[in-house]
Every structure is written in C-alpha cells, then in structure tokens.
Design a protein around this nucleic acid. Structure first.
Length: 569
DNA sequence: GCCGTTTTCGGCCCGACTGTTTTCAGTCG
C-alpha cells in the first residue's frame, strides 16, 4: 500500500508542477518519499491511530493525511482525478522519457495537444517539436532516443520491484494444504535483472482448489485464463503471473523447462539427443520410458551434466565449461557501500550497524556522499573527520565489541569531470577506504570518460569505483567507456570495481562481471543503502555476480574485515 | 503543503548540466 500511495503523491506533485513551481510540489514529493520509506504499512498505521497517527509521519500534515484517508476508504483521490481532468496528459508515460518533465509536457500539450507517448512520437517524426520555444533539434533527437529506449524494454519490470510480490504469492500458495511442491521458474528464478512475466510451478492433488485460490489472490486485477493445469492473471503492479500445476513425476523436468532460458533448453535438449535420449517438460525419456523428471538434479544427471544453477542458464558456455563454484547467497560478510543519517538518510550509523549485525555481518562500511552532491547533504572534509571520531567511539562500545563487529569508515567521493575528487587527499587518507563514483556530466565522450575514471583510480587513496558504468535499468544507458582500459587501470592501480546491488543499477552487470573476473580482478558487492532495510537487497547483487560466474574468492567482502583491509594496501 | 526550544506565519529549495538561449528554464541527483 505504501508504494501505491507514494506514487499517487508523486503524480499529484508532477501535475501541480505543470502549473506552478511551488512548495506544494516539494511537499507532496516529500510526503511520497517518507511514505515510501515507512517500515509499517500505512494502512495499519491508519487503522490503529487514524488521522492523528498519520499526521505524526514527518512531512504529512492535516491535508495529506486526509487524502490518505480518502484513498484508504474510497480507493481514489479526488484531487488527482480533478488534475487529470484539467490536463488530460499521461504524465507518467511522458516523464518516463529521460529529460522530459512536467514543464516540457505542459508546453507540448498547450502547443500541440500531445497527451501521450504515441502522439509525441508522431510529432517528433513530423519535426513539429524543434520549432517550439525552448525546444530544438537536439531535444527532438533525445526524445526519439528516449522513446526507442522505452520501447525496447516495454513490458518488463525490475526484478527487485516485483520480487516482494512474487515472494508473497509463493508464500500464500505454499501455505495451502493442497499444494505439495512449489517454485518460481522463468527469468525470476534465473534472477535476470528485468523480467517480463512471472512463472510459478506447483504440484497438487486438488488443482481446481489451488487455481480458485490463485485467481482470487489480493492484487489480482484481471484473470486472463483459468484452467486445471494453467491459469494466468495480471497483478495491479502491471505484470502477469502464470501458475502451472504439473504431475509430481514431472516437477523437476517442468521446472527445468520453464526456468529456461530458451537457449539453454535448446542446448540441453541437443545433449540429450546426442545420448539417445529425449528431454522435454515431462521428463527425460529413453525410448518411451521415463528415466528422470522427478527432480531437476535428476534431469541434469540423466543427460550427463552437473547441476547448473539457474542464474547460469543462459547458454553462455555453461553446458561445456567446467563449472566454477559460484558465490553463495550467504557468503557476504559485510557491506561497504552504505549511507547514514549524516547524508540525511533515515538511519544513524548505529542503526545501520545494528541491522548489519542482525544479518550476521562482521562489519559495515559507512560511505557517505561527499560535498559536491549538495542534495544528498554531501560531507565536507571537516564533517568526515568528525564522523571518523564518532565511528571510532562506536567501535569501542560494548554492543559492538560483544559481536566482534566493526564499523569501517569510507566515503563515496565524487569524480569530477577532470578525474579529480571533491575531497582533499590528506582527509581521504585518514579513512579506512575510499569509494569514488561519477554522479555528474555523464555524457562525456568515450575517451574523456574513460580517462576521467582512470585519473580517479590513480589517486592512491581510491580503493573502489562505485556503479562503474552508470546505467539505470529501463531508463538510462551506460555511459561510454572503454571497459578494457578501465580493467587494465584497475589492475595497475589496485582498484576494485563495485557490483552495485540496487535493483535499478546492478552495475557491474553480469557480462562485465565475467570480463572483470576473466581479467583476474576481484570485485566488491555492495548495496548503496540509504536506509537500513535496503541492506537486504544484497541478494540482487549476489545474483548478478552469480550470473557473471563470480566465485567467492572473486569478491573481496567475503573476507574478514582484517583481510579485506589488507586488499586496500 | 508542512513545520515550529526563535515561530501559527514565513521559511522551506541546492547546484551541475543540457540545450536552449543571449541570460536562462527545465531536469536530475
């Protein structure tokens, strides 16, 4: 519910912004952000304490509290409906294009009557945009590029966005006594960074009952089809879920078949054929006799292959190669990229550390933004040194010592366009480690961008490059860099590349992870948490590392703090 | 629209970058 209500307030803010740039816009955005990061469902808060408790949430006053109540009671908010009626522009759609916001959308609507992407695309192609005041040739080109980019990923969602819903569906179905076995399949099981639809597989002696339950799950907005073996629904977040019920003796082979990838399946079927066998979703067959199918392990064994983890099933050599022992989901011993309340985040260093201890970590690295990033309340030299003192003090406290835990201090310094950092070296050298990252001027030409990052790597204080290629999934391309040159420099200057676990980054991506590993370099898996709950997204970074065939030894934060720090020497 | 050991009114919201302009608005982080 929180995410849904937060989105509505962001939407209201954007519609208001079409007309005016005022503090109301900021207020609605702030409310949206605060609702999004609530630990408790806002519905529960309301049901327990009514309007009064809603108003206790920072950024939420009388007015917005009332709107939340209105939504919880009626399922809509009149203000938003009125705004949409007044300006019938699909703002969500248009502002999904990089570089497009409320103001530009307003001009396009006023001058050309453009209401959605389709009309916008037509206008761009007819060159009606460039002559408008404030627009031009470049804008036209950028819009077209943005639209193409959106189309390419149309219908796909971020894995991290849908995962909570998937896990909930699995839990609900799994709790039915009629369900024997259950598993997610498809690209979700392969932990692909974006997914089209969700496939779930189950066995049951009462399929009708399970299907009845499935199509009436909370959040289902449309039932595409419902049968005894397959049902398909649309969830309110905009993705589809298929549930298939198969016979127990075929569960393994069906799981193998529906997990894919398609290319991996073609390759495995060829292997089967070469051994005089037949592999399909019902099992592995010798002549007409099933010799496997009950379990996935059995299927791979029957065709003479080792068990291949789902994350590796992309026909990227996994069939023929000697499989590495890829990193496990429990191998990480600490998180090095975490922001604290010093950056305006919700949680103090202590709270972040407590969460890390709860997760079984041995250390946490606090790496707050530095001064160039004003909006993130970036720290200056003085503040970093003050933070150093606070961390030293915390490390002396019993609750930390008793856990053998340690807080490390880093920072995430900004790499300026010339490759310099925004913090003086004599301060950087007093931290336990330094992350450097690009947060501005992302459209530099390839050689300049490459040189910029390499210059930063040359700084002897720099240990890690955060989100090295700058991509934002479904939104922004990587910036142009010569990745091989970056790898060579990383080796020469002993710098580690980050695998950023944020579901919209996952940067490095799987193929770059593999290249990095093959170049003989180690990496670090981090969350870039701005909130203690986000420490849990490490699983998406680990998944990406597994997709890139990284082993435990390739990831430096699978080591103890002591060993880890020795890598930075 | 929210907020208050200065306050119930008057602050809050910064800077770089881009693509437009010829001094700046819009967007993004």
């Amino acid at each position: 519910m929180n995410e849904k209500i937060a989105k509505i307030f962001f939407e209201i803010a954007s519609y208001i912004q079409m007309k005016e740039d005022g503090f109301r816009v900021v207020a609605y955005r702030k409310a949206g952000n605060n609702i999004r990061s609530l630990k408790e469902d806002i519905k529960d808060i309301y049901e327990r304490g009514g309007l009064k408790d809603l108003e206790k949430i920072p950024g939420i006053g009388k007015n917005i509290a009332k709107k939340i109540e209105e939504y919880l009671k009626t399922g809509k908010i009149k203000t938003l409906q009125r705004l949409k009626k007044e300006i019938p522009v699909k703002l969500n759609e248009i502002s999904a294009i990089e570089g497009m916001g409320s103001k530009k959308a307003k001009v396009l609507y006023d001058k050309l009557g453009i209401r959605n992407i389709k009309e916008l695309e037509r206008a761009v192609k007819a060159h009606k945009i460039a002559p408008l005041f404030g627009f031009g040739e470049k804008t036209e080109k950028n819009i077209l590029q943005g639209i193409e980019f959106l189309k390419k990923d149309k219908g796909r969602s971020l894995l991290g966005q849908i995962m909570p819903t998937v896990e909930e569906i699995l839990a609900r179905l799994g709790s039915l006594k009629e369900v024997k076995e259950i598993s997610v399949a498809g690209s979700v099981r392969r932990m692909k960074e974006t997914v089209g639809d969700v496939d779930i597989l189950a066995t049951s002696n009462k399929p009708e009952k399970v299907m009845d339950f499935f199509v009436s799950l909370p959040g289902v907005v449309k039932v595409w089809g419902k049968g005894k073996t397959k049902s398909s629904v649309r969830m309110e977040q905009g993705f589809d879920v298929d549930l298939r019920i198969v016979k127990p003796e075929s569960f393994g082979s069906a799981l193998q078949y529906f997990t894919g990838s398609k290319e991996h399946n073609i390759a495995t079927r060829k292997i089967a054929i070469s051994k005089g066998l037949k592999l399909n979703e019902y099992g592995v067959f010798k002549k007409d006799k099933a010799i496997a199918g009950r379990t996935e392990q059995g299927v791979y064994r029957a065709i003479g292959l080792p068990y291949i983890p789902p994350e590796m099933r992309e026909d990227a050599g996994e069939i023929t190669a000697k499989l590495p022992q890829i990193i496990g989901y429990d191998d990480i011993r600490g998180d090095l990229h975490c922001h604290s309340s010093w950056n305006g985040g919700e949680h103090s260093i202590k709270e972040m550390a407590e969460k890390a201890i709860e997760m079984g970590y041995e250390y946490i690295g606090i790496s707050d933004h530095t001064k160039f990033l004003r909006i993130e309340k970036g720290l200056n030299e003085k503040q970093l040194l003050r933070q150093r003192k606070e961390i030293n003090k915390l490390n002396q406290e019993l609750w930390i010592k008793n856990h053998g835990f340690r807080i490390l201090q880093g920072c995430e310094a900004n790499i300026m366009p010339d490759g310099s950092l925004d913090i003086k070296d004599n301060v950087l050298s007093q931290l336990d480690y330094v992350i450097a990252g690009v947060h501005s001027a992302m459209k530099l030409p390839k050689n300049k961008m490459t040189q910029r990052i390499i210059t930063a790597m040359k700084n002897p204080n720099v240990n890690i490059i955060s989100h090295p290629t700058g991509r934002l999934l479904l939104k922004r391309e990587e910036y142009e860099i010569d990745f091989d040159k970056i790898l060579r420099a990383a080796k020469e200057y002993n710098v580690f590349l980050e695998i950023n676990s944020s579901p919209d980054r996952l940067d490095l991506k799987d193929t770059n992870i593999r290249r990095t590993k093959e170049a003989g370099l180690k990496m670090v898996i981090s969350t870039d948490s701005h909130h203690k709950g986000q420490l849990e997204i490490i699983k998406f970074g680990i998944a990406q590392a597994r997709r890139g065939w990284a082993e435990k030894k390739d990831i430096i934060n699978t080591n103890s703090a002591k060993r880890l720090l020795s890598f930075f020497k």
